[in-house]
Design a protein around this nucleic acid. Structure first.
Length: 421
DNA sequence: CGTCCACGTCTAC
DNA sequence: TAGACCTGGACGG
């Protein structure tokens, strides 16, 4: 569940579940986790949480610790009353799959890599669950220094940090890539960047500086009266305002954003998405291998066909032709399709790792042409929201066929929309 | 069964 | 700027 809104919602979940709850004992780490041990132990302690962009801080506070004024500087410097222990701050990053969950201690979920036990009678446990283990924690307690202000909770600072640093080379990048730079956009992730750019129909591969410089002007001139400015802002939010507002929309939705655990929530979330992974939208792989979803033109800095070839060549230097056989048509087949996607994506495919040689043949490429018709058609399909017009079955069928046409995965969200049906 | 894909960083060539 | 790091769901054959 990991972009800014999910981290924030998780902090609320923790505070709601743990307010007034007494935890006890030590903090337990799974055998498999490579993260550091958490050297905290207390007979009675409380847990609270806060978030900042894509980080979440847990504070463990021994009940007897600093609550009474007398205890403050005196005992605690060394040892608190109960063998005590000072409050500890833990910073979590969620990677691709981190989340927190409160369960019965007897029912610790799979992939729960850090566990905090309550003192209740059937004890419960607050668990940091992370299937892929890209997430982790630091006992240090301070926000990662190279990450910028939170787009949701420190909006003014966030905005200033961006506008005062437009000379930074980070803004040489396409706007879609800059939006993932946590030094400036702490909390924005892959679905948010797509949704944000989509609201303004900004081509994802327009240069970030170009897009953002235009905001400075607006900053000054523009409306005369204050009320006019306020109104203008509300009705025509600029890119940076949307970096705050769009994540806040997710928070306002009841469910928990990207949460695969709750089918109700995930259905609502998918319904909320206007662009990311939506059938009919275009998608391309950015320079970091991440898929950007968008509508309309990709923009001037879009990866060229050459780029895909590059990867290809890397694998094996043979641009076209040479190894026709290898083909692994399967793999490439997908890519193909005719949309921008395919055009660009040859590359994307994989960052495979472990296995060296492998096949890869890339090829497939020949067909890079992009087919506007196809795209348009898909879009149209996507837009038919009203069931009334088309039967569910029919619409489903069309979607799937569209998917097939485009061949690939890329274009089609495979599961998602289809699943929702 | 195998391939592709996923809400994100990190760090080594 | 490629991989590395991981698990598992959806698909295709």
């Amino acid at each position: 569940m990991p972009e800014g809104p999910e981290l924030f919602l998780t902090s609320q979940y923790i505070n709601n579940m743990c307010g007034g709850l007494i935890f006890s004992g030590r903090v337990e780490k799974s055998q498999v986790s490579k993260n550091s041990d958490v050297p905290f132990e207390s007979e009675e302690y409380l847990i609270s949480a806060t978030s900042r962009g894509k980080e979440l801080k847990l504070t463990l506070t021994p009940v007897k610790w600093g609550n009474s004024p007398s205890c403050k500087e005196q005992d605690c410097g060394s040892q608190g009353p109960k063998g005590g222990q000072e409050p500890m701050g833990l910073i979590f990053r969620f990677g691709m799959s981190g989340s927190f969950k409160m369960t019965l201690a007897a029912e610790i979920p799979k992939h729960a890599h850090l566990r905090f036990y309550t003192k209740e009678s059937p004890p419960r446990a607050l668990c940091f669950v992370d299937v892929r283990r890209f997430g982790g924690w630091e006992v240090d307690g301070s926000w990662q220094p190279n990450r910028g202000p939170c787009v949701m909770l420190e909006y003014e600072k966030f905005r200033e940090n961006v506008l005062k640093n437009l000379s930074d080379k980070a803004f040489n990048r396409p706007i879609c890539e800059a939006l993932l730079n946590q030094k400036f956009f702490n909390g924005i992730g892959n679905y948010l960047r797509a949704e944000i750019l989509y609201r303004l129909k900004i081509p994802p591969f327009e240069e970030a500086r170009t897009v953002l410089e235009s905001l400075q002007h607006r900053e000054q001139s523009s409306a005369t009266t204050l009320s006019k400015k306020v109104k203008l802002k509300r009705e025509n939010p600029d890119l940076l305002e949307l970096c705050h507002m769009v994540p806040m929309e997710v928070v306002r939705q009841d469910g928990k954003g990207y949460n695969p655990d709750s089918s109700a929530d995930s259905a609502a979330f998918e319904e909320w998405l206007q662009c990311y992974s939506v059938p009919g939208m275009n998608s391309l792989c950015d320079a970091n291998g991440r898929t950007i979803w968008f509508q309309g033109e990709p923009g001037p800095l879009a990866p060229k066909g050459g780029k895909q070839r590059k990867k290809r060549s890397k694998t094996k230097a043979d641009p076209e032709g040479s190894s026709p056989k290898v083909t692994k048509s399967g793999a490439r087949k997908n890519l193909k399709t005719g949309t921008y996607q395919e055009a660009a994506d040859g590359t994307r495919g994989r960052k495979k790792k472990g296995k060296p040689a492998q096949e890869k043949t890339e090829d497939a490429g020949g067909t890079s042409a992009r087919n506007p018709n196809t795209r348009a058609r898909r879009k149209a399909i996507a837009s038919q929201e009203s069931p009334a017009v088309v039967s569910v079955a029919e619409s489903r069928k069309r979607r799937s066929s569209a998917r097939k046409d485009t061949a690939t995965a890329a274009a089609a969200p495979r599961s998602r929309r289809v699943k929702v049906k």
